[in-house]
């Protein structure tokens, strides 16, 4: 599976637990880490990187899931981290990150900005990643069970879907053995956010008819009084009655014989 000497960088960020609000691992980042471990083959060729302002403890979950060292690029809360990350991982051939981070500055836009900075193609939402010679092939997640194969030449940025591979089980021993390495804080320009007033709310659709559902149902079905559009067949033998039904179904293209 692993290709010798492939340099892999995995970007992780702590997520906020939906119930307790505590920092925890994000399933997509964990999947990216598990893929990274598998593809890099050894921890020397794997860089696990985080840029942001979270405390070391918030990253402990990734250590427990197999990262032997998480490198932290300390930045301010509102920093524009894409250029900083790009500078750190410029020599990586394969950059893996979760489709979207669970918190911090790693929005779903980050992989695109990063790919732009690195001048590398981006393969989004990977379920599996295979290295073939100098190129990467992924199976892309699409809704409703659809999948698509994408390929690009190295170096490449791949965002990983949370169902790609199961994360390594949480291990206390790995957490204790792992290290968080803090780089020198870098002064970064704040991300440029343009604020605009939100547009008008979409107007709810107006129903074509004001009649109640019951009334519309009565209008559609047949009755003896002839006022409705339906037809009540009482004359004739069963074959003729069946012929009426069959004609109706054919008219409405509900049967094709």
């Amino acid at each position: 599976m692993s290709t010798p000497m492939l340099k892999v960088a995995v970007l992780v960020a702590p997520a906020i637990h939906p119930v307790s609000g505590r920092p925890c691992t994000h399933p997509a980042d964990s999947a990216a880490l598990a893929l990274g471990l598998k593809l890099a083959g050894s921890s020397e060729r794997l860089t696990v990187l985080y840029a942001g302002a979270a405390a070391d403890e918030a990253l402990a979950g990734y250590l427990a899931q197999g990262a032997s060292c998480v490198t932290v690029l300390p930045t301010a809360e509102d920093a524009d981290i894409a250029p900083l990350l790009a500078a750190q991982i410029a020599d990586a051939e394969l950059v893996l990150c979760g489709t979207r981070a669970g918190g911090g500055q790693g929005s779903a836009l980050l992989p695109y900005q990063l790919a732009e900075e690195l001048e590398a193609p981006l393969l989004p939402d990977a379920l599996s990643v295979a290295i073939k010679g100098g190129s990467v092939e992924i199976e892309q997640f699409l809704p409703k069970g659809q999948r698509r194969s994408l390929a690009a030449a190295l170096p490449v940025v791949v965002t990983v879907h949370e169902r790609a591979v199961p994360a390594l089980p949480y291990s206390h021993a790995r957490k204790e053995a792992g290290k968080v390495r803090r780089l020198m804080p870098v002064a970064a320009k704040a991300a440029e956010w343009r604020y605009e007033p939100a547009g008008r709310r979409a107007r709810p659709l107006v129903a074509a008819s004001r009649a109640s559902g019951h009334e519309r149902m009565l209008g559609a079905i047949a009755a003896d009084d002839g006022k409705t559009t339906g037809l009540v067949v009482k004359q004739g033998d069963p074959v003729e009655k069946a012929q009426v039904l069959l004609d109706y179904l054919r008219d409405h293209q509900l049967v094709d014989f």
Partner: peptide, 29 residues
């Protein structure tokens, strides 16, 4: 459990819940 975390079945999920929410079932306290 401590070195490999290879707890079978729902055990792994229960342990993650305990770490993250202080409850076995992942409920809000």
């Amino acid at each position: 459990t401590l070195t490999r975390g290879e707890v079978p079945g729902k055990g792994r999920e229960a342990l993650a819940n305990l770490r993250d929410t202080d409850t076995v079932g992942g409920y809000p306290l």
